[in-house]
């Protein structure tokens, strides 16, 4: 089989999550009918996983770290009066204890720097991971929502009664999603379906709010609780949070004010 080069680039970008939504949807549609293309994607994913998990990551050796720390500190010392005051004393022959103390004080500016460096590495790693994950899930939620809207197939169990929707979903999932039933007449539960987000089957609840479709995706989260975060992309508003061990992602094309009002209601309801 001969795949054109542009396709191979597209497949790579697809695996890297770097396609825009339109191209992503188009490729996903093609993947559905093309087993060979699917196999290629699978191979790329395997390779990507293998390189990520098996290739050596060369961390900076301690000696280099110390040298660079000293270098930066030396630059700093040249500009600080305090360090200048220490220097003439260091030039004199010093007694043993004094020399040790001076050496300690000369190195002291490095200690917070190294500590800070270590803490910052830890913090950036910790911070970047969930951010990238959120971004990926956001793309998946948008894609699911757009697909459902385009295909006009949003609802598998049609009911405004959460006593109908919840058991239906529970029987098809390995968890029981909280189903919010709107109290006022501005919004209504239309039904639900099972969808696939973040590598697992999730509950998708469909509401109508002031004439707009609102979808809420729910699945068991790794965090038991997380505050509401908003995002906006391609004209959609998204909000996500975790509560009671469930991740909630809500998407709609409502206007921002109404959307955040609705989210305030949803996120405090279950």
């Amino acid at each position: 089989m001969n795949t054109p080069a542009t396709d191979i680039r597209q497949l790579n970008a697809f695996v890297d999550g770097e396609l825009d939504l339109a191209a992503q949807l188009e490729l996903e549609a093609r993947l559905k009918d093309d087993a060979a293309l699917r196999a290629q994607v699978e191979r790329l994913r395997n390779l990507r996983e293998a390189v990520r998990s098996r290739a050596d990551y060369h961390a900076a050796p301690d000696a280099l770290r110390r040298r660079i720390g000293a270098m930066v500190a030396a630059q700093t010392a040249e500009r600080t009066p305090a360090a200048a005051a220490v220097r003439p004393a260091a030039a004199e022959p010093a007694s043993g204890v004094k020399a040790v103390l001076e050496r300690w004080f000369a190195w002291r500016p490095l200690v917070p720097a190294l500590g800070l460096a270590a803490a910052a590495i830890f913090a950036t790693n910790l911070l970047l991971l969930p951010a990238r994950q959120d971004e990926r899930i956001e793309q998946e939620v948008i894609a699911s929502h757009v697909r459902a809207t385009l295909a006009q197939r949003m609802i598998d169990v049609e009911s405004s009664d959460h006593h109908t929707v919840k058991p239906w979903l529970s029987s098809r999932l390995d968890f029981s999603p909280p189903v919010y039933e709107p109290a006022d007449s501005a919004s209504a539960l239309l039904g639900g379906r099972v969808d696939y987000v973040d590598g697992r089957a999730v509950a998708a609840l469909v509401y109508r709010h002031k004439g707009h479709v609102v979808e809420s995706y729910v699945w068991p989260a790794s965090q038991s609780r997380a505050s509401v975060k908003f995002a906006e992309e391609k004209g959609f508003h998204l909000a996500h949070w975790a509560r009671g061990g469930m991740a909630h992602w809500v998407i709609s094309d409502l206007n921002p004010a109404e959307f955040s009002a609705l989210i305030a209601q949803l996120s405090s309801s279950d």
Partner: peptide, 13 residues
């Protein structure tokens, strides 16, 4: 020190 030095590992890698 706060914004560049934390990336020494990436630089070395």
């Amino acid at each position: 020190e706060a914004e560049v030095l934390p990336h020494l590992d990436a630089a070395y890698n």
